[in-house]
Design a protein around this nucleic acid. Structure first.
Lengths: 216, 216
DNA sequence: AAAAGTAAGTAAAAACATTCACAAATCCAA
DNA sequence: TTGGATTTGTGAATGTTTTTACTTACTTTT
């Protein structure tokens, strides 16, 4: 495992799951061939960027023809480890947490919430979207083989729970709380701050009047 | 209005709401002075980046001292138009939409969901988090003064509803569906793709083993 | 089989963003 | 009041990402 290349730019890496999903859709639709231009229109990513991104993995297409959907899809499946599943723990079964449980990833997706926790005893024992809710006190015993957590707890609990997650061996956290949590160097945190996103959109609308630009 | 500077880098603009929120917290806590180093530790943004970001707005601090929290906060309040409220429409009162309605922004926040829509008649008429749910058919009549929409509908409806939103005068969309929607040039779309975020985190964990890096 | 068209791949340029490193200004302790 | 400590603001260096522009190779049509 551990594919050699650490050379793929982060910006590219962030787009890979998007590429994968679109290729999968095309494949399901029975399309066997696609060009960077078509992909560009569908995904709103510049076609040169797409070609450059793909090129980090080698020459995957054919000049004058484009890309073979099935081949490309297979390639990305391996690259993105779509074979192996990534089990995920959800911490905090509030409104947002419940949304995640019902959302049920794994349509074209190798990530799946396997276990959920909440501090509210009325929620413990319930099954939401097929997933059992455990009490947060039982966190430590129920994270076997799980290294990724989605954090949807109240902001006041965020750091405290994070510390426990880290101690329990979690090494990646998708943090939906507004808290900028502190973790050891070997733990990766991605923040998604919904209030910031909304304000940021409003700011861009007011101060960056577009009449031409591409995207986000 | 329309503050002169179109010169602020986008990367900086995206951090402004974060800065604002932290300054507000500091102010509430009664702190009157703060350095870029302290801010850096709290927000996990490099201190030089913070100083550089602030500097786009002029010299806001004092050498040897740091920044006056109240002054800086006041400055950002004006810059971010925290005075004027930005009313928002929520389209799609499913799990995620409900989470937003209950989440209720506007703690330190000038964005507020004012109206919600759904296609399910059983939801219409309900009040969730103080917000009335209207039928999606009544979209066009109920978007007076609203220019921002949060899109949390099923992916199959995304483009169709987007077209209606645009026709009804919406010029900014926070899109939580996996669809990469098509809009006219003058409409700004920010995508938040939860499945992609999760997969992307998993990819980074596997291929970018950190033992040192900063953040996202 | 030739000509016209298409589209990948990429080198180089441009644009964008972060970080270093330090002078200048101010603070603060004794 | 002096002198060391602090901390900003920023030029320059570095790093990253996007975009341009073009060659090459293949496809398709005639």
């Amino acid at each position: 495992m551990m594919i050699n290349q650490n050379k793929i730019p982060q910006a590219t890496a962030k787009r890979l799951p998007l590429y994968y999903r679109f290729l999968n859709n095309l494949h399901i639709q029975g399309k066997s061939r696609v060009s960077s231009k078509e992909l560009s229109e569908a995904m709103k990513v510049d076609s040169a960027t797409i070609r450059r991104d793909f090129s980090y993995f080698g020459a995957l297409g054919k000049k004058g023809y484009g890309y073979n959907v099935e081949y490309l899809l297979g390639f990305f499946r391996k690259t993105l480890d779509q074979d192996e599943n990534t089990p995920v723990a959800l911490i905090g079964v509030g409104n947002l947490g419940t949304a995640f449980l019902n959302y049920n990833f794994t349509k074209n997706n190798n990530t799946k919430i396997e276990v959920a926790f909440d501090a509210d005893k009325r929620k413990v024992g319930k099954t939401i979207g097929d997933i059992q809710v455990h009490h947060i006190d039982d966190l430590e015993g129920n994270l076997e083989n799980i290294s990724v957590a989605i954090l949807t707890v109240p902001v006041s609990e965020a750091q405290n729970i994070t510390d426990r997650l880290v101690k329990a061996g979690i090494s990646g956290i998708l943090n939906f709380t507004p808290a900028r949590i502190t973790v050891p160097e070997n733990v990766r945190v991605h923040h998604i701050d919904l209030a910031v996103e909304l304000q940021s959109l409003a700011y861009f609308m007011k101060h960056y009047p577009l009449e031409n630009e591409g995207e986000e």
